[in-house]
Design a binder for these strands. Structure first.
Lengths: 136, 136
DNA sequence: TCAAGACTGACAACCATTGTCAAAACGTCT
DNA sequence: AGACGTTTTGACAATGGTTGTCAGTCTTGA
């Protein structure tokens, strides 16, 4: 995931945001805005697609959800469990995700950037593979 | 970038492919299909947009160009300099790119995946920052 | 309770990317 | 050179995720 830390502004509590929050809480793995929208519709709590996008974007800006791009370039979201920066090990087939902390990598990235004079550094790191269950 | 190694099939030599190749050779940094298409048009050697996409895809499949997704989710391409797997340090502002080899990271990613029973592992790692020139 | 302003939703607009398919270009074989 | 089977091209339509619009609705603080 991409590193980012921003102040969290205040937002109004609405039925729609609560609904999105709820789904995120119940969802272990990364989910796209479209999927989230379908889920909401399926469970009766219909929320406009645009609203879903806006809500996710807001959450992402506040650092309350992780965002990453699937191989297809689609943005997928997930409630951020750890506060600190971390990465993901994602199953290519079922999407099962493991959060990974990699202090080594953090330091390495930082030092590489420094060596080349790059400032204000952030990085993206995701590992993809096939999980044990999908291999059975 | 994403790890991948495939056999390189034969393709016909055409004016369009040559033109794309030429631009790639002259371009240091990552470029999007759309930009490449504009460049070609600008220099007179017009090539259909669909053809640009197809050509880039073919090159990517053959491992002759690197592909990665910009923050905006747009696919960007670049002639692959090193043969082996590597990563990139990309300037967030001007796109200037440095290729990075990170054996440490490779091993780390592999071991993490192993620990969790994930097989057929690949990974993505890009570092973003502001290059010295853009900071001046 | 009220007013100000944030939020929502239906829909249009965007835009990168892919599909389609007839016409043109290649490479090869004579 | 000429013919022929294939591959490639390009103009255009179609797709699909994402964002913009804007009038109507809901929250919140006073």
């Amino acid at each position: 995931m991409t590193v980012r830390q921003q102040p969290a502004k205040e937002h109004r509590r609405t039925r729609q945001r609560a609904a999105v929050d709820e789904v995120l809480d119940e969802t272990e793995d990364f989910i796209s805005a479209q999927e989230l929208h379908s889920l909401l519709r399926a469970r009766g709590a219909g929320v406009g697609l645009a609203t879903v996008y806006r809500t996710l974007q807001t959450l992402a800006d506040d650092g309350r959800v992780d965002v990453l791009r699937s191989d297809a370039g689609e943005a997928v979201y997930r409630r951020c469990v750890r506060e600190e920066h971390h990465h993901h090990l994602v199953c290519r087939s079922c999407g099962a995700t493991v959060e990974i902390a990699g202090p080594t990598v953090e330091r390495w990235a930082k030092s590489v950037a420094d060596q080349h004079g790059y400032a204000d550094v952030s990085h993206t790191l995701e590992i993809f593979g096939t999980c044990p269950r999908c291999r059975a």
